[in-house]
């Protein structure tokens, strides 16, 4: 699985997983992280499909979802652009963070851990310096 750079986005497509979700997730995180700047032009559907060698319909569906997320907007005759509204990105990020936390909490609760235990684990993880990039 190799990493592919398309414009200012990069993708890692794994053909053993559904493609639509990978494109959507990776584009979402690139926008949320600011890898691609506010108001910047997204690669065209054609360009992305060509680089990744995948069906343009799959890319198109992912782009439609990004638009519904409020992360991108279509400009007539010019293509798709990252939203210029920082609020949109921030609120998407918040919503996504909330979603991740929900599923994290659910998994922790399934392990029978209390809030105190969870807090302790997370703090321990952070102190040992192996925490993620942070959002």
């Amino acid at each position: 699985m190799e990493e592919q750079q398309v414009g200012s986005l990069h993708f890692q497509i794994d053909f053993s997983q559904p493609l639509y979700e990978q494109i959507l997730d990776q584009a979402r995180s690139a926008i949320a992280k600011g890898e691609i700047a506010l108001g910047e032009k997204m690669p065209s559907v054609r360009e992305l499909a060509q680089e990744l060698r995948i069906n343009p319909n799959t890319v198109m569906r992912a782009y439609q979802e990004l638009e519904r997320d409020g992360l991108t907007e279509k400009r007539r005759g010019q293509g798709t652009f990252v939203t210029s509204s920082a609020d949109n990105v921030a609120s998407f990020r918040t919503a996504l963070a909330a979603k991740y936390i929900d599923s994290f909490m659910e998994q922790m609760e399934n392990l029978g851990l209390s809030w105190e235990d969870i807090e302790k684990y997370v703090r321990g993880k952070k102190d040992s310096g192996t925490g993620g990039d942070g959002l």
Binding site: R46, A49, P56
Partner: peptide, 8 residues
């Protein structure tokens, strides 16, 4: 490449 363009 031309197939991808065609599909699009």
């Amino acid at each position: 490449a031309s197939l991808i363009d065609f599909l699009e």
